[in-house]
């Protein structure tokens, strides 16, 4: 167990090191999400009622669409230099490669959210610095990473991968997006944990199911 965690962390840390040097994924995810937020602030009359009504949907749709661009890039880097094959040559179970890559993607999307969510609060004039927001963001990011890592690996060898990934990813994460939007909506309207409990439970169930299933499927999609 300890050895497996060390492998997962080594892969995640390696992705983080490369991202610190290249700044490709976080910049593209945060940049794309911010563009979506800014466009909507101009497109909608953002009085207090409207902001609470549409804000959560705009935030999570923006992060989901932006996440796709980052997920595409994170796996493309492994394929361009065939380093994914180098990982596959290591004497480790291939589900650890999945979990390591998912950890890297989780960190990228989380860092992008650290930039995006405060700006969302400013643009939409909503109070989001609450523990509820942290829980929603962590659960949603975990689910995005779990599903996105699997589908990015599936689509990375396809010629039209930029099109393929959103077509696979977005329909599958719809329940998670619903949970994130509804929970955030409850939060900005000042409701309690118990009001959003069912949505958070949905997010937890989604995350657990997709991490387990994706880790199992991943090893089969890697091989020729």
């Amino acid at each position: 167990m300890k050895g497996s965690l060390a492998i997962i962390w080594a892969i995640g840390r390696k992705d983080l090191l490369l991202e610190i040097r290249n700044k490709e994924v976080v910049v593209s995810v945060a940049g794309f999400a911010l563009l979506v937020l800014v466009i909507f602030t101009f497109a909608i009359d953002l009085n207090q009622g409207n902001a609470k009504l549409v804000g959560p949907g705009v935030l999570w749709a923006g992060i989901a669409f932006a996440g796709v661009t980052g997920l595409n890039r994170a796996f493309a880097l492994e394929v361009e230099n065939s380093t994914l094959e180098a990982l596959m040559l290591a004497p480790i179970s291939r589900d650890l490669i999945y979990l390591g890559k998912a950890l890297g993607n989780f960190l990228f999307i989380a860092v992008a959210q650290i930039i995006v969510i405060p700006l969302f609060a400013v643009l939409f004039n909503l109070i989001v610095f609450r523990w509820e927001m942290l829980a929603i963001a962590l659960l949603t990011t975990l689910g995005f990473s779990a599903v996105g890592t699997l589908f990015a690996a599936m689509s990375v060898r396809v010629r039209a991968r930029e099109v393929m990934l959103p077509l696979l990813f977005l329909p599958v994460v719809t329940p998670l997006l619903m949970a994130a939007v509804e929970s955030t909506s409850h939060m900005v309207n000042g409701r309690s944990w118990s009001d959003m409990a069912q949505w958070l439970q949905l997010a937890v169930a989604f995350d657990v199911a997709f991490i387990v299933v994706s880790a199992f499927i991943f090893q089969h999609i890697l091989e020729d």
Partner: peptide
């Protein structure tokens, strides 16, 4: 141990960093 067509290395990491990373993969 395998050396196939492509060197299969992380271009933006140093030689040492690459070898240290794969040493972790091989425990």
């Amino acid at each position: 141990g395998s050396v196939l067509h492509s060197p299969m290395l992380y271009a933006d990491m140093s030689v040492r960093e690459n070898l240290m990373f794969f040493a972790d993969m091989y425990r």
